[in-house]
Design a protein around this nucleic acid. Structure first.
Ligand SMILES: NC(=O)c1ccc[n+]([C@@H]2O[C@H](COP(=O)([O-])OP(=O)(O)OC[C@H]3O[C@@H](n4cnc5c(N)ncnc54)[C@H](O)[C@@H]3O)[C@@H](O)[C@H]2O)c1
Ligand SMILES: NC(=O)c1ccc[n+]([C@@H]2O[C@H](COP(=O)([O-])OP(=O)(O)OC[C@H]3O[C@@H](n4cnc5c(N)ncnc54)[C@H](O)[C@@H]3O)[C@@H](O)[C@H]2O)c1
Lengths: 224, 224
DNA sequence: AGACGTTTGTGAAGCCATGCACAAAGCGAG
DNA sequence: CTCGCTTTGTGCATGGCTTCACAAACGTCT
């Protein structure tokens, strides 16, 4: 009785982080004309254990057929819904340097439901420049137009010292989700979600593992 | 008896992932002239609990002074050693499109001990182009010169369909650490470490959380 | 209709990471 | 030297995630 079908179950963070991978693989399968897939096959494509895949999917509901597997289209749709990708998300990028330009001209986002609707920078030389079909605006306009444009997700690609300032402006404009490329820790009010991507950190983690290799039995032809 | 002082202890992955953050903050403190820091202060700057910081550091050894804290220079050096950053790491980037160019011209890597020593692409229009002080080489030369240049870390910034091919070439050239920006799962021999950075995935995770917000008590002035 | 092989969904167990709480250890003041 | 204050390093408890293993469910074939 208390089981409301529309009630969003608690989905573990670890699962949420894997759902996009499942979705991407399912989309590829659908394009290849595959209609049905087993947890074993799908898990192998994504690089996880089949038990993990099944447990992850069980958090969304029961969309498989025992003895058969999952219908690719259906499962893709359910993951899309769980992730909230049935609607389009308006995205703004702040900081149109090297990285900002690469992000703005990347076509891989739109196909996933993300639309870049605003670009900001504080360099007068960049303001007014057209990237794709969006014009770069002055960053002091963030508070003015971000709310108006309905920006839901903000991407920060400014140098580290500017990141907190930009973040504050975004939050003040009603943005509750921020992807931060600057190597700095952002302080935000409760209810605002921040994810950080730090490429230097990734390289350093790789260096750690590479260092441990020293003295190991060479390359290995062993496949895993 | 089995305790070899030079034996590298097992450092948990979760800890390794945080060490670069600690190091970055310590470097900033050092530049600001701070000589000593407590676990409480450092943890606050990084955004973790102090107990977690102390436990993380305890995996490296005992470099703090009770009642006082940690000497910034010393701790930074120890983390640098633990991560294997006392040596410089030669890095190659494959795929010099938008993202590849942004990465190649990013100055934040060299200061951390990473040197981009080779760039590859298979587009004749790009081959020969100079980025910084490195010339773009044809990607069919990877096996020829990667080993010779001592490439330890490979960065893949090609479209997804080319990623596995490029990865194979890198591995064949003796590269054991790969940072993959392409949205594809790479298959590698045992002993090769792959990390993937997928910006679409990050946005999708943010979308999930943003979606859950719907109907929540608005923005909130509450600081956390 | 019933038996059989396959694959899902999930309890249970094991594992790892996080957070708590405190004894041990250092420093400085008296 | 001793006392008291501060902060580290860590044992232990807690919670979450992963993996195992199997009953339940489904399609198919006879
Ligand atoms: N380029 C890379 O490959 C790379 C890799 C890792 C990390 N990063 C990080 O990403 C961020 C951007 O890198 P980049 O290479 O594009 O740097 P960049 O210097 O090329 O671009 C930064 C841009 O931000 C703009 N900016 C500065 N202050 C601003 C403000 N207050 N409001 C709006 N815009 C502002 C600048 O005008 C500039 O256009 C940096 O924090 C960098 O550390 C970049
Ligand atoms: N640009 C972004 O902001 C962004 C964001 C997310 C993910 N990505 C991913 O990063 C990758 C690169 O993105 P991009 O925007 O730079 O793409 P891009 O098309 O601008 O560049 C790809 C480059 O790879 C080269 N290439 C293709 N096949 C190759 C091969 N076999 N060997 C060597 N080089 C080869 C191409 O010549 C081109 O220069 C893609 O996989 C993309 O999905 C990019």
């Amino acid at each position: 009785m208390s089981a409301d079908p529309t009630l969003r179950r608690e989905i573990p963070d670890a699962t949420v982080a894997r759902l996009p991978e499942y979705l991407r693989t399912l989309t590829m399968l659908a394009e290849a004309g595959v209609a049905s897939v087993s947890s074993e096959e799908l898990a192998a494509s994504v690089g996880v254990r089949s038990a993990q895949l099944r447990k992850d999917l069980s958090h969304l509901g029961s969309y498989g057929v025992r003895g058969v597997g999952y219908e690719v289209e259906t499962l893709a749709l359910e993951i899309t819904r769980a992730l909230g990708l049935t609607q389009d998300w308006p995205v703004a990028i702040v900081g149109m340097g090297n990285l900002g330009h690469a992000l703005a001209s990347y076509s891989g986002f739109v196909t996933k439901g993300f639309h870049i609707v605003a670009l900001f920078d504080d360099d007068p030389a960049l303001i007014g420049e057209q990237v794709g079909d969006v014009t770069i605006r002055p960053s002091w306009d963030i508070e003015g137009c971000a709310r108006e444009l309905g920006i839901a997700i903000g991407v920060i690609a400014t140098p580290a010292p500017a990141a907190q300032t930009v973040c504050d402006a975004l939050v003040k404009s009603g943005v509750h989700a921020i992807l931060n490329f600057a190597p700095s820790v952002l302080t935000v009010p409760a209810g605002v979600e921040v994810r950080r991507v730090d490429l230097s950190t990734e390289l350093q983690i790789l260096a750690f593992h590479a260092q441990r290799r020293v003295g190991l039995p060479s390359p290995a032809v062993v496949q895993r």
